[in-house]
Nucleic acid binder design. Sequence first.
DNA 1: GGTCGTCAAGAACACTGTTCTCGTCGAGTT
DNA 2: AACTCGACGAGAACAGTGTTCTTGACGACC
Lengths: 236, 236
Amino acid sequence: MFSKLCDTGAMSASSLRARVRSEMHQEIKEVARRHLAAEGANLSLRAVARDMGIVPSALYRYFPGRDALLTALIVDAYEGLGAAATDAEAAVPREDLRGRWFAVCRAVRSWALAHPAEYGLIYGNPVPGYVAPQETVVPAAKVVLLLAAVGRDIPGDALPAGPPVPEPVRADLRRLIDERPGDLPEERLDRVFAAWTHLFGLVSFEVFGRLDTIIVARAEYFEHHVALLADLAGLP
Amino acid sequence: MFSKLCDTGAMSASSLRARVRSEMHQEIKEVARRHLAAEGANLSLRAVARDMGIVPSALYRYFPGRDALLTALIVDAYEGLGAAATDAEAAVPREDLRGRWFAVCRAVRSWALAHPAEYGLIYGNPVPGYVAPQETVVPAAKVVLLLAAVGRDIPGDALPAGPPVPEPVRADLRRLIDERPGDLPEERLDRVFAAWTHLFGLVSFEVFGRLDTIIVARAEYFEHHVALLADLAGLP
DNA sequence: GGTCGTCAAGAACACTGTTCTCGTCGAGTT
DNA sequence: AACTCGACGAGAACAGTGTTCTTGACGACC
């Protein structure tokens, strides 16, 4: 029988089992995260098992294989980044549009700098045979949705001048707008996408060390370019 | 004695040896590139050796180890990308600034889409223990230097309005301008950097599959955003 | 109390990067 | 022309990896 379905009589014992199992899951991921931060993307199951004082094959009771563990870490990373951005944005008064915009961008940068290995896992090289499972697409879209939400709250249709959006791109944007309940104009969504791309370009360059020898005032550099993007997206 | 120092008498034989050795180098890298494209970042020396019909230890006659082979591939990738951008830009009349700008950006995208694994090698996750050797910094800077060269050729100091560049960032930009002979204004170099960041954000998103389900008109999307950036950088 | 599922251990397999030794063969020197 | 020395490739070996299978043991349920 499935222990999840057992009734309330022996529920406490069964849920204790489930709880210790869940804690084991968490501990494995925790140790794996430490190894990821120390060693980079090539995570060793045996090393994780060694750190936990168990034998490698014991890990297979909790994860079907290395890829599954990596997937779990990837999902956690997306959710961590999404949560950081969501919390930061939620702490700003709704009418302070520029404040919300900056809060999202700063949260992404801070989280990425605090968790470089996990950031690399989700925004770096896609791993070889790995295909993103369905459960990653929702958390992965969180940041751009937050930016789009700020863009939607901007009153009016005013935007800084720029080249017209070509029709095929317009069609893509229209489709995306129709899929979601939001109703922001296509031109503004286009600018939000530009900001989204630029934001992660900025963060990736910094996290991956590409600014190391050319920009030392990284925080100011980031703030300034986020301001540039906010203007481009039509924020007041 | 060092065969490189032998005089012209036996030079032909010696250079023949050197030539076959260099060809071996090239062939190893070629096979490794194929494996990289097929398998992703985890390159197997033994698989490369198997494909070449030699024993794994024989590879160590040509490369001190796996990291050295990877480094060689990275250097080649930087140089390939840089050469593609340079050639494309050189084919445009000097006075067609916008044409040169677009040529660089399109070349980067084309090269990246044609060599996704190598692009991932240089613009994705930095590999774990690997530190970029000195020989990579010059080819790595090629693209941004090309963009800066176009920016320098723009007559006048006119730029679309935007937030002021903060002083610490200004200092970084001033230092970079002083190091190189170019003399473009700091504000413009700042916009060039914005375009550089956005360009690679755009290309990385596309190559790494992040646009897969949201934008189908990728070429038009790219062109449009490059135009947006060209405007922002002050191109006429 | 008996039965069954879960857990950890251990051994095993195939694979990896790397090092070492050992013949072989060709070019340079005397 | 004989000798020497270097480069070359093969092969074995070592340590490490992901993964699978089997074997006991222990706790929860009928």
